[in-house]
Design a binder for these strands. Sequence first.
DNA 1: TTGTACGCGTTATCAT
DNA 2: ATGATAACGCGTACAA
Lengths: 329, 329
Amino acid sequence: MPATMRDVARKAGVSIKTVSRVVNDLGEISAPTRQRVQSVIQELGYRPNVLARGLVSGESLSIGVLLPKITDPFFPEVVLGVENVAHQHGYTVFLCNTNADPDQELAYIDLLAGKQVDGFILCATRLTEEQIVRVATQHCVSVLTGRAAVRAAVVSIPGEAGLREATSHLLRLGHRAVGYAGRAGERVAGYCAALREHGIAVVEPRMCLLPVASVEAGCQGARELLERAPELTGIVCYNDLVAIGVLQACAGLGRRLPQDIAVVGFDDIPMASLVAPKLTTMHVPRHTVGEMAMDLLLRVMAEQGGYQERLEVPVELVVRESCGAARGV
Amino acid sequence: MPATMRDVARKAGVSIKTVSRVVNDLGEISAPTRQRVQSVIQELGYRPNVLARGLVSGESLSIGVLLPKITDPFFPEVVLGVENVAHQHGYTVFLCNTNADPDQELAYIDLLAGKQVDGFILCATRLTEEQIVRVATQHCVSVLTGRAAVRAAVVSIPGEAGLREATSHLLRLGHRAVGYAGRAGERVAGYCAALREHGIAVVEPRMCLLPVASVEAGCQGARELLERAPELTGIVCYNDLVAIGVLQACAGLGRRLPQDIAVVGFDDIPMASLVAPKLTTMHVPRHTVGEMAMDLLLRVMAEQGGYQERLEVPVELVVRESCGAARGV
DNA sequence: TTGTACGCGTTATCAT
DNA sequence: ATGATAACGCGTACAA
């Protein structure tokens, strides 16, 4: 059993309150007493019980980070960024994998609320906007999402603008038959918008909507897509995982990159520059994103309620090899 | 402010204890009372304060997972495995990045001890064995390491045996001039052992000892290594990151794989099968490893003290393309 | 079946 | 400068 304040107090021959004073460095205490207490603390290896302290103060100095799955290469760097600033401010982070299941998200929020966490960071949440708002009114929350309208404190990844840029890149390179592979949502919208801007018709068979964004799904999807629309000379993807799957499918089908077909990804995960050919992709500063999310949460917690703000993550096209226009790394 | 037991008790017109009884489902209560209390609980959205409960019970139902950096692709899957079984048993996990710095490890252990965590999982710890033992006597600890002798509860990754197998593979393929790139420790030892078994001299210049195991370090190291020992026809690596770095260096130097030179990695991280050529490597069942570590910790926590056990992780050679003997994926 | 009283380790109020 | 004492929210003896 670890030593308590009482133990220290007894052994030092002072009251509990006095021990509390030296532990919390509250001044109002004589030098000799402080010395004595401090040495007893050392001797007993006393360490304050943060839980008991939290019971009084009402804060646990812990936060919860919810994400679909830490094995998705997008998240580790984000989590690192979150943890860095959290730790800097005295917070510890609970990591929770929700499997992209809203019920599990809700369950975890409940669980952590019971542990009195001071705030939540919801990454790529699958909750409805209504649910998010509800959670945000009951707790301090910062949301990391690609979705457009969320009335909460959100760090927003501009999926639509990003895919618009990616698509435009291919279009500018002269591609006309450009397809899309990935999940539904803002990102396809960006793809469609770019086509329209360039006066190109959006045709259904050139889009392959995937339920999940993984290498396997991308590979399978690309196979179907290229069978359905063999005229494609370019494919823009929901993210890098899908793009890598597309790469594999092309390799299997004997379509060479970038000569026969161009591929663009999104996220710039570490893998992106290691596959062959190196992936052209939209770079997302994931570590910074994590820092932004935590910084934002700190503000939400400071405001204590209903705080709203919207931060846009800067994304940037990184041209590599997979689209035949290598200008950089 | 969330509702407390007292609020519920007052509103339901019963005592606190009665509320406690229904919350903890302790029987000894009449059906109508239970009904009434339960409905008030719903109404007020009451949720037990786990911290307060822990103050009494002495357990927080939280554990801490310490690792160098979650962005190292080895860890996410491990953490997922840990969290899966932790969650199954009612535990929540604090994730802590220690930057491979023993001081930060110790600091985090102290911090989490203050939060009354019930146990720690130390991944790839940089603590000395003495320090580990000390921590393990004060707390419930399970250690994930490649190191040989640690008197604690450990999940051991057989680095020596693994590298012996990797090296032997190249040797069996006819390679004689085989080098090593990576950190010092058991793994080089395995490399040396394999050479000796095959009657090949261990020569210093063929080994490149790296301070860190990263793609960059591997790339740089391989450049130096191949300059120093151009006769090499094979390089076994500390892990896949280093191996991928070696791949890059070879590409830069115009050495083709696997014709000119063979490369073997360790860990079988997701990237390993996505780079070109696909990496031959020692597969480590990382998700299982995480489960093992948490299962072990559960046993340690159950025993309450000085529990020792040693689990060996099964590793397995996966032959792909990078060593010119593709037989599988 | 239900309630009272105390303790868990800490902070905070108010005396002294 | 120092110390009683009452919270904080909950479990557990022990009564009633």
